[in-house]
Computed example of a mutant assay.
Amino acid sequence: MKRVKKQIFHDYIAKQGLKSTRQRDIILEAFLSSERHLSIEELYLKLRAKHPNIGYATVYRTLKLFADSGIAREMQFGDGQTRYEHVGEGEHHDHLVCTGCGTIIEFENETIETLQNEVAAAHGFLIKTHKLELYGLCARCQR
């Protein structure tokens, strides 16, 4: 899957007339290797120790390119930061967001998906896309 996403990104930047650079490839590898919903700051800090020549603006612009190419999705979870997550073909999940510590838990639930479709159908509505985010406290923050 990682190889497919890399190819999608490289095809996209070529089509845009942009250069494939070593810095973009390093950022791409770090992003695809992470399982978290990364903010620009988090990815920048992750890269900085090993690659001090990669600046914050480069990480910012590259993450935007990931979103534009379709391999990443920009997410807002109410903390004022844009976070980026991987996008997989035909894959869908929802989020539990802890308002205490900021933990984000991905989940899938077929019952919720079925209910959403039933509600839409009852109103003659065709869902094109959706997102479900539930905000509250994780088990650790409840203690």
Rank of each mutant, 00 (worst) to 15 (best):
M1Y: 09
V4R: 15
V4A: 14
K5R: 13
K6W: 04
K6T: 08
I8P: 09
F9E: 02
H10G: 00
Y12G: 09
I13Q: 00
K15N: 04
K15D: 08
K15I: 00
G17H: 06
L18K: 13
I26F: 08
A30N: 05
F31V: 02
F31D: 04
L32K: 14
S34Q: 00
S34W: 00
E35D: 15
R36K: 15
R36S: 14
R36L: 12
H37F: 14
S39M: 04
S39Y: 03
I40T: 15
E41C: 01
E41A: 06
E42S: 11
L45V: 10
K46C: 01
K50N: 12
K50C: 10
H51N: 02
P52R: 04
P52S: 02
I54W: 01
Y56H: 10
Y60W: 12
R61V: 12
T62R: 05
K64Y: 09
L65I: 06
L65A: 05
L65T: 07
D68E: 14
D68K: 13
S69Q: 00
S69A: 05
R73A: 13
E74G: 08
M75R: 11
M75I: 11
Q76M: 12
F77D: 04
G80M: 06
Q81C: 03
T82Q: 01
R83H: 10
E85Y: 01
E85W: 02
V87M: 05
V87D: 00
G88N: 15
G90S: 11
G90H: 13
H92R: 15
H92V: 14
H95L: 07
H95Q: 10
L96T: 14
L96W: 15
V97T: 03
G100A: 02
G100D: 05
C101A: 01
G102D: 00
I104Y: 00
E106C: 02
F107Y: 03
F107M: 00
E108V: 10
N109W: 03
E110I: 08
T111L: 13
T114H: 09
T114W: 07
T114N: 07
L115K: 11
Q116F: 13
E118I: 09
V119M: 14
V119N: 07
A121E: 10
A121G: 05
A122M: 09
H123M: 08
G124L: 05
F125N: 12
T129H: 07
T129W: 04
L134W: 03
Y135W: 10
G136V: 06
L137D: 07
C138D: 05
C138V: 10
R143L: 12
R143I: 07
